[in-house]
Design a protein around this nucleic acid. Structure first.
Lengths: 183, 183
DNA sequence: TTCGTTACCGAACACATTGTTCAATAAGAT
DNA sequence: ATCTTATTGAACAATGTGTTCGGTAACGAA
């Protein structure tokens, strides 16, 4: 990829992040983005078809980044559901989010985060689907699997939102404990 | 209130609902609303400052409607947390939503429903706050109240969204049972 | 029915935002 | 050194926003 392309793309993403931390996605205009990124209007549209596509690619990139580093660190995710949550994917996710990514935190605390959360949701669902059987012992037999799956994912995302919204005061370990206890 | 005002207000709301069931809030224009409602542009703006205020008042009205009818039916809500969920507020809410309001279902299944869900959330939080002690026996002592409160409300809303998103296939009683079992 | 009030109309308006086009330029790759 | 391509800046039509205003007609109260 051309160095110029990379630079402008990054400039756009940076400007976008800054604006996103200040105002709602819908209230951000392309004009503001290109002013802050200091690029030409035509350049923006040569990179992104519309503002929505910018958000989409932004989310995708962040999302890939989370799960790539997760995998790079060599965790196998067979113990998703060990009792206390230690060494689970969920703990790793909480830890990762606390350490690394300001961008992700911005997205999670902004209003219009549905798109990003949906990426999260669908991937977590896949993850959980393949390990739901490990959870069999403790789950009530009266409740269908597809409800359980949705419940676990929802609870994780809501816990995450709550944590971020409250300023990341608790340790990842504590949050993971809360999460496992309520689920 | 002038009969003319009521009529236009209703016409706007109806047009808004129809459009909301077809496309995202952000993609709806004032032009479309007034065309469908068959009113003048100036009239729209004499009723609502902006499109966002329309959404706001729309949500408020729907939301009041839910809780008003809840109260009119003379339920006292002291048994929010009886074991199986029968005769709980939650059951009544599920029942009410299934029977009555197409508008609310439209809002719940649309993308941009954060505003409406927030009304829901904050009122449910108040409701639960005053009855959280009734739940003491079964909740784990290691988890702070404010996390529990958030968890219960989130789980209710996520259950509701899941139910609506899946086409209201289950009975309200069944959904309430699921909800109570996972919480 | 009458009379004063007020909501609606509709057409026009300035304004902001969007997304496109194009030739010129400068920075890339090889 | 040369070919390629991203960026620029300015202009552009098209669309949407929110306001204004005189004229009309429906309204509520007497």
């Amino acid at each position: 990829m051309d160095r110029r392309q990379r630079k402008t793309r990054e400039a756009i993403f940076n400007a976008f992040t800054e604006l996103l931390s200040k105002k709602d996605f819908n209230q951000i205009t392309v004009g503001e983005i290109i002013d802050r990124a200091d690029i030409g209007r035509a350049t923006f549209y040569s990179h992104f078809e519309t503002k929505d596509f910018l958000l989409k690619e932004f989310c995708e990139e962040l999302f890939c980044h989370i799960f790539d580093t997760e995998n790079d660190e060599g965790h196998d995710h067979h113990h998703i559901f060990n009792c206390d949550g230690s060494d689970s994917v969920f703990l790793h996710l909480f830890q990762h989010l606390q350490k690394n990514d300001n961008n992700i935190l911005v997205l999670l605390s902004s209003q219009n985060n549905e798109l990003f959360l949906n990426y999260f949701r669908s991937n977590l669902e896949l993850l959980i689907e393949s390990h739901l059987s490990l959870f069999d012992i403790r789950k009530s037999k009266d409740i269908p699997d597809f409800f359980w799956k949705n419940h676990i994912v929802s609870t994780f995302l809501e816990t995450l939102k709550w944590w971020v919204g409250n300023g990341l005061k608790e340790n990842p370990e504590v949050i993971t404990e809360y999460f496992f206890k309520v689920v």
